[in-house]
């Protein structure tokens, strides 16, 4: 078992507020790892630290053996860490296809003169972007809508488009921030299949934050529970379900 991402004593303070307090986490290559916890527990903050939007106050962030805290977001993305957002962030007034194409931009440096003069390197990168967008749009069932504006898609489609865009980066680690938010049960089923497919076929490690317990318990192999910025439990779904502290702070009675 090889670890892909390691968090050592990550602490994040916003003024006097301590959003994360010494969180340790190890994510193994090829697993689906879930992070759960009540609202305000620090889940999204954790994502923002991993993707470089925040620089942690203390602690280390190690990706593939390399220390990455302090790296700007675009650099972290080009290392192969892609993400989706809890509140959808698409390029609304661009076409669906362009949205996915832009997802590939972290792979190859965009050169100004190359673009302006249409040099072969740029042409090749553009062709690859097109191929990739076709592939992922087909995979996520959005190919027919590739010329529409992203803003004109339905909510569920927009969520899928975000995943397609993240996949276009060829990530080794994919972070999904509440991917099932606002989805109906059928869509959630599809989403679970999709996440498994991403891991099994594309060999991408998945880290997800989610409130839907059914989804988390079903697809995650390991789960960490955050509460008030502290990790209070970690383990397999069965262990988490029966952990007293977790039940007290978050799960409550699962009704079983």
């Amino acid at each position: 078992m090889q670890q892909i991402m390691k968090l050592e004593g990550i602490t994040q303070e916003f003024g006097g507020l301590r959003a994360l307090d010494g969180v340790d986490l190890e994510i193994t290559r090829g697993e689906i790892f879930g992070v759960i916890g009540p609202n305000g527990a620090g889940k999204t903050t954790l994502f923002n630290i991993i993707t470089g939007i925040y620089v942690p106050t203390a602690g280390n962030l190690i990706f593939n053996g390399q220390k990455i805290n302090g790296f700007p977001p675009y650099k972290i993305a080009s290392l192969g860490i892609a993400r989706t957002f809890q509140n959808i962030r698409l390029f609304n007034r661009l076409s669906v296809e362009d949205n996915v194409k832009i997802g590939t931009f972290g792979l190859e440096k965009i050169s100004f003169w190359g673009s302006l003069l249409g040099l072969p390197v740029e042409k090749k990168a553009e062709r690859e972007a097109k191929e990739k967008s076709d592939r992922f749009l087909q995979m996520l069932g959005l190919y027919e809508k590739r010329h529409e504006y992203a803003a004109s898609l339905s909510y569920g489609e927009q969520r899928r488009l975000e995943i397609a865009r993240a996949l276009a980066l060829d990530p080794v680690l994919l972070l999904l921030d509440e991917p099932a938010a606002g989805m109906n049960p059928a869509e959630k089923e599809e989403l679970m299949d999709l996440i498994r497919k991403i891991r099994d076929e594309l060999k991408i490690t998945v880290l997800l934050v989610e409130h839907d317990m059914n989804l988390v318990m079903n697809i995650c192999e390991r789960i960490a529970v955050l509460d008030y910025g502290r990790k209070i439990a970690e383990g397999m779904p069965e262990e988490i379900k029966n952990d007293e502290r977790v039940i007290m702070s978050y799960l409550g009675d699962l009704g079983e």
Binding site: P72, Y74, A77, R89, L90, R93
Partner: peptide
Amino acid sequence: ENEIAAEACGIN
């Protein structure tokens, strides 16, 4: 369209 998302796509 969205600076944070652009940055997350690897754009400087």
